[in-house]
């Protein structure tokens, strides 16, 4: 973390996309400076050159000039479309996570960030990540909307209750960086901050091994058994509930027509309000688990269901 108190003008650049974002940012700055100089310059020149010299001045009328109108409609339009295209390309780069990477889980709540590592270690308001490896962060909120914002990585994503969102980054520089909540979330919004600690992969492994942990899928399996889910959701589709084998990421046929991709949000809904979207061919007999599992336990359960890959082919489809 940069703690010098002097005048700072440029944010740290510590992720794989930061440079790309800055390139477009500086291009926009250049465009802006050009037009500001043009408009200010013209105004300054005109008001000086054509200042009123006598109270009886009566300048000739100029109605307009079609060519000029087309010029200053066309040039901004073309420029705007160019910037749009560049920005859109960048947006997909910043938002679309790569296939491979470490899966982190983050739960936001008033007013803290709860982080879980792929191997199960938990932290609050701190997040240790390895340098040079893509990190996917699946997030949800226990209460209001928060926003996961790491300025040095140029990454931001609103964390919305009731659904899962994914952000990703690949840190490129070892160090400590701010983590902010950037969506106003109540009284201590400005204290819902933390730090991201980027370590060399070896240091990260060492850091992990210094802490006991249970991988989320293992914790989820225990919870799954404890809640008695397995009585109905049997592996061989003979139970009263559908088998969960390979269900993650697949398309599920619903009762009354329609299909839905079994992603985190759907699985979460099916635990909390099981009747909302029933799987075709099954009765709506599952009770709700609202109040028994909080967001973190839900993440464990989902991690477990996610680990239940179908034994042979066909491979579960990614959404």
């Amino acid at each position: 973390m940069d703690t010098e108190t002097g005048l700072q003008l440029f944010p740290e650049r510590a992720s794989s996309v930061a440079g790309d974002v800055d390139a477009l940012f500086y291009f926009l700055v250049a465009v802006s400076v050009f037009f500001v100089l043009l408009i200010f310059g013209l105004i300054a020149y005109f008001v000086w050159r054509y200042r009123r010299r006598s109270p009886s001045d009566a300048p000739a009328a100029i109605h307009g000039h079609l060519g000029l109108e087309l010029l200053w409609t066309g040039v901004p339009l073309v420029l705007a479309m160019f910037i749009f295209g560049w920005g859109a390309k960048l947006y997909f780069e910043v938002f679309r996570p790569p296939k491979e990477g470490l899966d982190f889980y983050v739960v936001g709540k008033q007013w803290m960030w709860k982080v879980q590592h792929p191997t199960g270690q938990r932290e609050i308001n701190e997040m240790h990540v390895p340098r040079g490896i893509p990190v996917k962060v699946t997030m949800t909120s226990e209460d209001v909307i928060h926003s996961f914002f790491v300025p040095a990585f140029r990454v931001k994503r609103d964390v919305v209750p009731g659904r899962f969102v994914t952000a990703w980054f690949m840190a490129t520089k070892v160090g400590e960086y701010h983590l902010f909540c950037s969506q106003y979330c109540g009284t201590a919004h400005s204290q819902m901050t933390g730090k991201i600690v980027v370590l060399e992969p070896a240091d990260y492994s060492a850091w992990l091994s210094g802490r006991s942990a249970e991988p989320p899928a293992v914790a989820g399996k225990k919870l799954f058994d404890k809640l008695g889910c397995a009585t109905c959701h049997q592996q061989d589709a003979s139970g009263r509930g559908p088998s969960l084998l390979g269900v993650f990421g697949s398309k599920v046929q619903l009762q009354g027509g329609g299909k839905v991709v079994a992603d985190e949000t759907y699985l979460r809904e099916s635990v909390l309000s099981p009747q909302a979207k029933l799987v075709a061919g099954y009765e709506g007999i599952m009770p709700t688990f609202t109040g028994q599992v909080d967001e973190e336990k839900l993440l464990d359960l989902i991690a477990y269901i996610r680990s239940l890959a179908l034994p042979p082919a066909p491979a579960p489809r990614q959404p």
Binding site: Q255, G256, G258, Q275, A276, K277
Partner: peptide, 10 residues
């Protein structure tokens, strides 16, 4: 909401 919860609306 009707499109997200068709069953309940029905």
């Amino acid at each position: 909401y009707r499109s997200t919860h068709p069953e309940a609306w029905h």
